[in-house]
Design a protein around this nucleic acid. Structure first.
Lengths: 342, 342
DNA sequence: CTGAAAGCGCTTACAG
DNA sequence: CTGAAAGCGCTTACAG
């Protein structure tokens, strides 16, 4: 019972008067150990505060029991600009990992780095969870590489056809539709879209398309002249809104591709003397905590981050175990606040 | 050059025509390997996309190369309520770990759980980083246990005398002083404090004391009748502000123990018909992103979370390597926004 | 500068 | 139901 120089399964074996493999079996819950023996072994293990050496068991079993979470940062800044949208998802993921008995390695990466090689290859993790915004086209190639080398992974993002690997994402088209329908119900039809609505940012594109479909169902359509590129940050949203205003085209609503963009855009609109929601109704996407705090409080499309985290982990665990798993879209919902009238 | 069944150091040894230990030495940068030989080995390793098996090397070297981050959640809710203050710190910590060549395991814990046993004992991590708010007195005993069992750890929080282990925290007293001095410069002397200013929450208590000292230097003092307990959440801040208002005592300023508390409190004050900052000046603490977004934008005490993360990792690495390391207080700064006049 | 040998603490066929 | 044996892929004295 040495305090330092931790106890090993051999120590327990000696104390219990059995062989070391029997201790291993008992601890792992193998059915081929006598119940009496098991109890004796468990008692001794508890008393010695024994914990299985992960390095040894993983080495022997040729697996890690660990998942790796790669969170992509905005490479344009040296400060940490993790999208706050991912914070509750991070919480959900860690909780789900604990429930599955997996450890979670976390790493913040630049999209440009050689991250796809590091983890699985060094036997640190059995599989990868990929989170973060970024140019999808720059990203797709790496996903294919992961797939080719047989590394299990799941990612959060747009669920597209013919996509390498498995994706969990929200129903962006449906969310865009909710926004469009809401605008229509308010009598707004000149809807500006702030966000990069191209195949570089498929989530944003889907949100744009969803809104467009809602308008088309009502005999209208989105006007590309009212679309301005922006990435998901307040600064980018603010700058894009200024550009929109500079175009001098009339609009009575703004659909922002994310809440951060919306918050920045509202600042620019207010500075320009426009009243929200009287002159311009604004809807965001994500429902981050700041959406409630913004002035006016932001109407937005809510995503179920808790469910997202659970699914990401569950699907990855399935993949690691060699089971089948499919991509999945999560439903969204409209949260009405003060940035739209009514 | 098999794609599956990853390359081992023995594979490289065969290809390079040397023994396996020589490969190991070359890869680890040992000075006792011929330069030519090393280059040859490195080239082959690169070509095979070889990565050292962490489980094997850690098992053999009896260390993990991994640090564990335990983030304590608010146990009162089932939702994930990680304080947003910790998000940039998380970014900084992961980056610092990468620089030190350490992996980072992350886990969200309840303060009540048996977390102090799990990590180090199972050889998953060489040391622990402890983050999160919570009742310090409920926590101190576990720190002593960690210390007694020789587990290296660092925590973020108040730096107190006679404290078990090593703490990194901001200069809360100095931060409180900045707030107090700012209020005085605005002619405000009836300063309410929202936050649990007791030894259960030493950080909050230090902030209260700092503000009090600034007032005392000016011949005034904080009034305990204007102090209301609150934990770090908007809801708690809002409820506490209502209680303060219900007391019916006059006050012309609120010092909130955290930004979340301040944001909740401002909501309650505004609903009560008080104008911020004309009737009540409000100062928060932390400088979370939401402080800028709040209406009015929140004057607050900024903490250097980037430096905090770097220090936490650097000190823990020192501890793990058996070096000496001391607790440290980081300076704070006042960020003036619209919630205080001028 | 290099190699042969041992061993880190487990898990898992293989026998009984 | 249990044990003796092998081996996961490294690192590190020990010799030379």
């Amino acid at each position: 019972m040495t305090i330092r120089g931790k106890a090993t399964s051999l120590d327990i074996a000696h104390l219990a008067g059995v062989s070391q493999p029997t201790v291993s079996r008992a601890l792992r819950g193998s059915p081929m150990v006598n119940e009496e023996t098991r109890k004796r072994i468990l008692a001794i293990a508890e008393q010695l505060n024994y914990k299985v050496d992960k390095n040894a068991s993983n080495l022997r079993a040729q697996q890690t029991g660990t998942l790796a979470l790669l969170l992509f940062e905005d490479p344009t800044s040296d400060e940490s600009h993790i999208n706050p949208f991912f914070l509750p998802m991070l919480g959900s993921i860690t909780r789900a990992c604990a429930q599955h008995g997996k450890d979670l390695l976390i790493s913040f990466q630049q999209l440009s780095n050689d991250w796809h090689a590091d983890y699985a290859d060094s036997h640190k993790a059995d599989g990868l969870i990929l989170l973060g915004y970024g140019d999808y086209l720059a990203y797709e190639g790496k996903l294919s590489t992961l797939l080719a080398q047989g590394t299990p992974f799941v990612r959060w993002g747009a669920v597209l056809a013919d996509q390498p690997g498995l994706s969990i994402g929200c129903d962006n088209v449906g969310g865009g539709r909710l926004a469009g329908t809401h605008f229509l119900s308010l009598g707004r039809r000149r809807i500006a879209f702030i966000g990069d609505a191209s195949s570089h940012y498929p989530e944003f594109l889907e949100r744009f398309d969803g809104c467009d479909r809602a308008l088309r169902d009502a005999g209208s359509a989105m006007d590309r002249a009212l679309q301005v590129d922006a990435e998901s940050s307040e600064e980018s949203g603010e700058a894009a809104a200024r550009e929109l205003l500079a175009r001098g085209l009339p609009f009575d609503a703004v659909f922002a591709a994310s809440d951060l963009i919306a918050i920045g855009a509202m600042r620019a609109l207010a500075e320009h003397g426009l009243r929200i929601p009287e002159d311009v109704a604004v809807v965001g996407f994500d429902d981050i905590p700041a959406a409630r705090i913004a002035t006016p409080a932001l109407t937005t499309i809510h995503q179920d981050t808790t469910r997202a985290g659970e699914l990401l982990v569950a699907k990855l665990v399935a993949l690691v175990e060699g089971a089948a798993a499919d991509s999945e879209r999560l439903p969204t919902s409209l949260v009405v606040r003060r940035s739209t009238p009514g």
